[in-house]
Structure formats: structure tokens, C-alpha cells
Design a protein around this nucleic acid. Structure first.
Lengths: 157, 157
DNA sequence: CCATATAGTAAACCAGGTTGTCGAACATGG
DNA sequence: CCATGTTCGACAACCTGGTTTACTATATGG
């Protein structure tokens, strides 16, 4: 039983699927009043979480340096999605928290991802989707939240 | 039947799987004498193709400006993967062609992708992998060869 | 023959990543 | 109680790759 498809199609299919989800979620976000968010911001907000975080912690979660995390935070702060407050218990730390706008974005994107997942479950059947996710987990184990994507895609090996 | 996983995990899993394949392929490439190629370059080489192209055309295919395409070409030329020749029929154009090294890189990566696919088939079973690919085709229809990935990643919306 | 369009290049800038350095604030051992 | 070490955040310098603007050289069509 030889492969029906050349091996290079598999990564392209995976990426196309990823891209399809991101584009759909982005369409939802633009419609819900967040037209200026970039593809990966939803994941960044997910990593920040409702309880807030710090630059160092965010860097660890995203798999990037604390400086890069700091830059990202600065940018999101300028756009009004997060705010920084000093930690009363530790004057070195600055707690990064989502603003109301950021929380709204997180809510919308979470709802959008759920909607897309449900739609996919409807398309191929819930058990097929569950099998797909189980297989993906088996085939690509490890940390899910590696958002050093630009650096990875263009970067060193 | 609620989803076992939050919806945002699905795109992350898809991307992680994509990234796993790309990383494995580049490990193979490094071993085969191409240690300095980046993930993006596979798309670029695919866009150049065996017949060659020009900077403007490459920019269109990759979804970036002709200047960005020109920069990429310059970098690949310096690394010896492509070469530029003047078009005898139009002195403005410069035809970009893969060198033997570039073609070797394509060959190695194609073999690598086949190997990874076969390994995945072994891991989850050929029929599960076939089902996964069939589902991906159903869920993310449309053009597989959308090479405007560089522009899409960092691009607006 | 000239006006316009196209190919390629260059400069200045931006985004986002890296490493290195540093000061301020905390933690801890002597 | 203080000296030392560590952690957090910030800054600077640099890299890659993208953008816009501007320019030259070459084609091409009215």
C-alpha cells in the first residue's frame, strides 16, 4: 500500500487547516469590533489569561525571550488590550492584565474557536474529529503554546 | 456531547503537527549538507520551481512585494541555492533559477517528507493517517499550494 | 518618437526576534 | 545587619524579512 499522496502534501494540508481556522476566527473578530488584531494575538491573550501574568512568565509560556515578551506587551498596551500594574508584594514585578477590551477579544476568539471546532465536528463527524485530534496529539507531542512563530519560521533551524 | 477540549487547542495542534514535520525535515536537510536553510525556504524553492522565475513573479506567488522577493533571492544567491541570468529577450528581466545545490535541496526535502509520512503511518496506522488526510482535505478545501505564507504570517489581517 | 508601463534595485523605516548589559528590588547566608 | 547573589524589567545593538517610496534602465504602443 504505497502512499496515495506525495509526502509534501501532509504538512501543506496541516498548514492549510491551521490557516483556515485562523482566517475564520479572524473574520469573526473583525466583525466583533477587533479588526486590528493579528493572527497570533488570540494565542497571546490565551497565554496571558484572565488572571494576568508577568513579562518573564509570558516569555516562558510563549517560548520566547523575556525581552520579546516585553515588546509584545508594550505593543498590546499601546493598542489598549493590556495594562501594566506594579505588584504590591514585589516592586520588581509588573503584572500584565487584560483590559476590558482584551477580555472581550479573548471571549470572542474563544467563542469563535469553539464555533469552528463544532462546525468541523459537524462536517466530518464528532468521532472523526476526536480521532484526528487524538492522532495529532500522538504525532506531535510536546508543548502546544510555542508562539515564537515568526522567529521560528524565519529563524535559525 | 460537549467538546472534550477547548476550541483553541485544535489550531494549536494543527500548527504543532506542521511544525513537527518541518523541524524533522530540516533535521534531515542539515544532515544532508543543507544546514542553513530555513523553514521558509522550502516555500520559496517551490515557488521558484524547476523552470525558474523572476523577482516580480516570485513576489506575486509568495504574496510579498517584489522588493522583498528580491532580497530573498539575493540571500539565496549568496548561499548558492539560486543563480540569476539576464533574459536574452528582455534586458530588464533577470531569470532566477535553482542551482544544482538548490535542486538537491528540493530532492532531499521531498525524500524527507516521504519518510516522515511513512513514519506517521507506522505510528497511528495507515488507515488512521489516510482518514486524517481525508478529513483535512474536507475541512480545509481549496488551493493547497498557497505559497503566500510569509506574507500571511506577518501580514495584516 | 515620445509617453507610459514594467523589471530590478536602493534607501529608510517597521516589526519582532535575539543577545548583552544594567539598575533596582528581593532573598539569603555569614 | 550586611554582603552577596538572583530575579525582574528595561535599554541598546543587531539580525532578518517585510513595507513604502523613489529611481534607473528597458520595452512597448499610440
Amino acid at each position: 500500500m504505497a502512499e496515495a499522496t506525495p509526502g509534501y502534501e501532509l504538512p501543506l494540508q496541516l498548514f492549510a487547516a491551521f490557516r483556515t481556522i485562523i482566517d475564520a476566527a479572524h473574520a469573526d473578530l473583525a466583525e466583533a469590533g477587533h479588526p486590528d488584531v493579528k493572527p497570533m494575538h488570540g494565542f497571546v491573550f490565551q497565554a496571558i489569561g484572565a488572571r494576568g501574568t508577568t513579562a518573564v512568565e509570558l516569555g516562558v509560556r510563549l517560548g520566547v525571550s523575556k525581552q520579546a515578551a516585553g515588546k509584545t506587551i508594550a505593543g498590546l498596551e499601546k493598542q489598549g488590550y493590556v495594562e501594566r500594574a506594579t505588584d504590591p508584594g514585589d516592586a520588581r514585578r509588573k503584572i500584565v492584565r487584560l483590559t476590558a477590551k482584551g477580555i472581550d477579544m479573548l471571549t470572542v476568539s474563544a467563542r469563535s474557536f469553539d464555533r469552528i471546532q463544532a462546525q468541523w465536528a459537524e462536517t466530518v463527524g464528532p468521532e472523526r474529529l476526536a480521532a484526528l485530534q487524538a492522532d495529532l496529539r500522538a504525532l506531535a507531542p510536546g508543548e502546544l503554546f510555542r508562539l515564537d512563530v515568526p522567529g521560528w519560521f524565519n529563524g535559525e533551524r
